[in-house]
């Protein structure tokens, strides 16, 4: 889990607001400079990084970086 969060944090660097570190508790919509398009592009990038499918249907259920990491891990299991 921690390794996946760390990988996601790297992908999120361009969207950081100031120097606040990205952790599992970071709220993707509120704590980062991301609009809905940027979130969809991030999912596509993570699909390739982890070789999984992350359907757009998951977007409403993913609020924090931790939840996103769990989605990636579960997709990995299902694959």
């Amino acid at each position: 889990m921690d390794a996946v969060v760390a990988e996601i944090a790297i992908a999120l660097q361009p969207f950081k607001k100031g120097d606040i570190a990205i952790t599992a508790d970071t709220d993707i919509a509120q704590d980062l400079n991301m609009d809905s398009l940027a979130v969809m592009d991030l999912l596509m990038e993570l699909e390739d990084k982890f070789d999984v499918s992350i359907p757009l249907n998951m977007v409403p259920e993913i609020a924090t970086v931790g939840q996103l990491a769990r989605t990636v891990i579960e997709s990995k299991k299902g694959a």
């Binding site: 596509m44 757009l56 249907n57």
Partner: peptide, 13 residues
């Protein structure tokens, strides 16, 4: 249409 429907949606480049 994807939102209205019930299928699983994947986006490609």
């Amino acid at each position: 249409a994807c939102k209205l429907g019930s299928a699983t949606v994947i986006r490609f480049k």
